[in-house]
Design a binder for these strands. Sequence first.
DNA 1: GCCAACGTTGGC
DNA 2: GCCAACGTTGGC
Length: 136
Amino acid sequence: MTTQYWLVKSEPEAYAWADLVRDGRTAWTGVRNYQARIHLNAMKRGDRVMFYESITTKAVVGIAEVTKPAFPDATADEPGWVAVELKSVSALAQPVALTQIKAEPSLANIGLLRQSRLSVMPLARAEFERIVKLAG
DNA sequence: GCCAACGTTGGC
DNA sequence: GCCAACGTTGGC
């Protein structure tokens, strides 16, 4: 199975990239949106995940990896919600700001711009690589 | 702090 | 099943 690419968003006050670096691995819990859940369920071990910090940072700051596919989210009040386990892989050399992403024609279709409220979304391989390149 | 986008809820 | 009201997210 080929590696797939994803982007997850987090408010840094809730859980920042630095927290993932500190923790090494974390259960990505708290997703309560059906479309995001579909994406969580589609994640496989080894998939690459870009970590976007919203609100204050507004930039992609690091790359994580799926270390455990979807399992029940223990923080949910109702059954059916899932989490995955992520581990930090590497920080980007430079954060890639939302403004840079908006300014990049080849990224015009990424979910981050098209569906600004979605917190878990797929990325095309080319989009993933483009953002890595923008990071320098 | 404001507001647009969008998801959810509840009355009908 | 429709739609108005409301809540949340997140950029600005």
